[in-house]
Design a binder for these strands. Structure first.
Length: 257
DNA sequence: ATGGCAATGTTTCATTGA
């Protein structure tokens, strides 16, 4: 199964690029974040015409997530939000897809250390940990994917010295990511040799993309039973090129049966 | 060879993102 995740930074704006990308990559499952639209404005018909069925948890202006599955791929048990964590922001949708529990998440940005938003991010990450611990008891094959908004290690940051202590690369956030790994999830990208300086997000400003000044903050994490079936994990930086790109690139993992 | 913020709504600026 080919599984991908992509923060599209407005599906309204990005739809043509998403359709192109689906035609080119033909994933079995695509998890989207930052739809920035309500469910009734979701371009369901266009995506169905492209051969994908969608499960959507949308929100106006901010957030919003979806799981798309190629026609013929079985999807069941759709759930939204983090059970037990009261959250007005639409950041999580989960579904069982072809026997794999897929949790599609848009982790809060956190703005800056010391702000309410940073506290919310840390509380959110702790709630996600509890959610994942419970999910791992119920689903042998589990994938936790999305814009997790944390660069887990120095090699995931173009300039770790400059970023140390800044949001996305604070010790507290790295610890939160480590705890997700601690419940039994593997970072699929690091199961393989990777080119150095591979990132999934680049600022729109300051020539960040051409200079490759990015962060690896989009991830596919897998339970032990799923990780051992992972045969590749890559980031498609080509999707960051050209006209009107998202500031994030898709992460793609392939799992054998 | 990439390109020098982008998207949204509160809309001609403010807010948010990362």
């Amino acid at each position: 199964m080919k599984l991908a995740t992509w923060n599209v930074n407005s599906l309204n704006v990005r739809l043509p690029r998403v359709l192109d990308w689906l035609a080119q990559q033909q994933p079995d499952v695509l998890c989207l974040q930052e739809l920035k639209l309500e469910d009734h404005k979701y371009p369901r018909a266009e995506l169905e015409a492209a051969g994908y069925r969608s499960h959507v948890f949308g929100q106006k202006t901010y957030n919003g997530v979806a799981i798309l599955a190629r026609d013929g791929v079985e999807v069941g048990d759709v759930a939204t939000g983090l059970a037990g964590f009261d959250d007005e922001q639409k950041r999580v949708i989960a579904a069982t897809v072809d026997g794999i529990r897929v949790v599609c998440a848009y982790v809060p940005n956190g703005q800056a250390v010391g702000t309410d938003k940073f506290d919310y991010k840390l509380r959110w990450c702790a709630a996600a940990e509890a959610y994942l611990r419970d999910a791992l008891k119920r689903f042998e094959r589990l994938a936790f994917v999305g814009d997790l908004n944390i660069a887990p290690e120095a090699r995931d940051v173009h300039d770790p010295a400059a970023w140390e202590g800044l949001v996305h690369f604070t010790p507290q956030e790295r610890e939160a990511f480590a705890r997700w790994r601690g419940v039994g999830l593997a970072d699929c990208f690091r199961l393989f040799d990777q080119p150095p300086m591979t990132f999934s997000w680049w600022d729109y400003r300051m020539l960040a993309f051409p200079k490759n000044r990015g962060l690896r903050i989009d991830h596919i994490l897998a339970s032990p039973a799923l990780a051992k079936r992972c045969v590749s994990c890559t980031i498609d930086r080509n999707a960051r090129k050209g006209e009107k790109p998202s500031d994030h690139a898709p992460v793609i993992a392939q799992f054998e049966k």
